[in-house]
Structure formats: structure tokens, C-alpha cells
Design a binder for these strands. Sequence first.
DNA 1: AGCCAATGCGTTATGAAATAACATAACCTG
DNA 2: CAGGTTATGTTATTTCATAACGCATTGGCT
Lengths: 161, 161
Amino acid sequence: MGVDCHHTESAQPGLEGAALASAVAAAQSKCERTRERLTPPRRRVLELLLEADGPMKAYDLIAAYGQDGEPAKPPTVYRALEFLERLGFAHRIESLNAYVPCRMEGTSHRAAFLICECCGTAEEFEPDFSPQFAAAEAAGYAVRTVTLEARGLCPACKVEA
Amino acid sequence: MGVDCHHTESAQPGLEGAALASAVAAAQSKCERTRERLTPPRRRVLELLLEADGPMKAYDLIAAYGQDGEPAKPPTVYRALEFLERLGFAHRIESLNAYVPCRMEGTSHRAAFLICECCGTAEEFEPDFSPQFAAAEAAGYAVRTVTLEARGLCPACKVEA
DNA sequence: AGCCAATGCGTTATGAAATAACATAACCTG
DNA sequence: CAGGTTATGTTATTTCATAACGCATTGGCT
């Protein structure tokens, strides 16, 4: 990453097996409750995000899309990502041009990340945006979504540095 | 913008004449104090940002660069933007792929924006990141920079909607 | 002054990220 | 089962950003 360190990219586990299946099933049933459709491309992209050890770039998803090594076409993945974001199953990390599955409950259009500039992991945390909401309201804005991205070093990389 | 409204792009004044000259001069002297060099391309890009009525895309800057209509080469502008961001004279708005001059004092690597999805303006406000810093520290992170982008409707567009 | 390391610039080319546009297919729902 | 709506497949293109290289300028140092 931006800074000068070099680790075996680590942290952020990445689901597999039963845990993965259960996470996908949860998304599935959540969709059913709102009459949304978790179609094959959407499900596939969600799987890839959940399996990953860290943020995935769109073109990583495109390359990894086919179980047989066949890449997807870009619109396939971008449309799936749009859906997953809309439903709150994934977030885009703007400063990385990358995507992560949502680790928090709920569909609130708010997200906050701690991004390690060394190992590249992005940890989602529960955002408390009260001061910023207060500022926005004071300015007369009607806020719809908020994202916050904090960059620095995660505990592991901080030690090594 | 994203939402379905259509205004004569407004708000955010954009400096000209004496105000512009004075803002550039302020940057100039700030550079001198830290032995940084506000070279012609850097100064030119800063001017363009200050003159603009809203966030500028990189390729807008490239197109507008030459006083004679000659565009710049992309690296010229991207390098200038990198410098201006480093010195705190400009911010990149990640969710817009666009740039604005810094409206706040100081070089703190923190920025917060209220972005109107209707008219496209981006208002910088003084961020109070205390709850997020607390969360980051609790998680053991060493935060270096923070940016926040809130999207919604500005007072003017809220009324019309 | 003359040297030299560091920094910045000009230029060409390419890479990475995202979307436009249009045709086809699957799905509800009445 | 007809017809609107939603989703997908496909081709092409646009938009955004950086790599790599050589030259110019700067600012310290002897």
C-alpha cells in the first residue's frame, strides 16, 4: 500500500464453507422479505466479496467471476455491485476504488472504515455521525448517505512500523 | 447529478480578480514559509480550482489549463493536484472523482463535505471527528487522515424538491 | 564559480475503472 | 397468456489515472 511496508497480506478472514453459505442464505432471505431478487450474478458477486480477505477491486471480481476461470463482462459485475450496495450488502470504499461486504447489521446508508495503509485491510466500524449530522442540519442540508474513510495503520502494522 | 433535478448550476461563488489574487498570494507565502515551491503548473491549477463554481474534474482542469485553450497533459495536472493536496490547498472528493480548493484554515489531513446530489455543489465544513477518533483508538488504529462525504440536498435544492 | 543530488517538468504511451447503448431473456401480475 | 417491468448479455467506448524516461531547474556544498 501507500506506505513502505510489506506484509503477507493478512487480517480480515474471508468466509468459507458453512459460514459462507449461511451468510449468503441470510442475504437471500432478507431479499425475499423485501421482494428483491438475489439473482445468480448478484449472488456470485456477493460470494466473492464474502470469500475475500480484503477489499476487492471491480476488475478482481470480474476476473474471479467464472468458476471455470472465465471472466465476467464489466457491466455484469458493476450492476451486481450496484444492487448489493443498494440493499446494504456491500459498500464501496471510495478511496480504494474497491468493495467490501457489509459487516454491520442493517441497511442504513452510513458506513465508516478504518483502512490500513500498510496491509490494505479495511475494517468497518459502527459510525456515530452525530456531530456531523448536527453540522449538516445546521447548514440546512438534508443528508441521505454518509461515508467516512479513516486511513492509517492497523494495530498489527503499527507495531511493525 | 444523480437525482432528477435540473438547476442552473449555482451556489459556491468562485473567486475572481482581487480575491483570487489574494488567495493565491496567501498560498504563495505559506509555501515560502515551509520552503515549498508554488511552481507555475501548481499555481495555475490552484487558480483554476479557486475560480471554479464547484468541484472540478481532473480532465476539466486539463482542458482549462492553457490560457490559450491548449490543454495540459494529464500528468501535469495530476502532479499539481498531488502537491496541492499534500500542502492542504485542495481536497479530492472521492465520491465525485473531483477536486475543490480547501476552504478551511490549516493543513490538518481531515476534510468533510456536504455534497448536493442535485446541484452538484460541495460545501466543506469543519469536521468534528471525535467519536470516530475514539472508535479508531479503541480499535488500536493510528489514524493519519480522515475524510467524510455526506450526500443529500442542499438548502436551495431541498426546497425545490 | 563548478559540481552534484534532489526535485520538478514535458512527453509518450498505456493501464485501470466505469458506463453507454441496445438486444434478448425472465419475471410477475392482471 | 399478454404486456409491462426488471434483469441480463454483449459490444464498444469513455473517463480517470499512472508508468517510464529524459531534460531542466534548484539549492546546497566545496
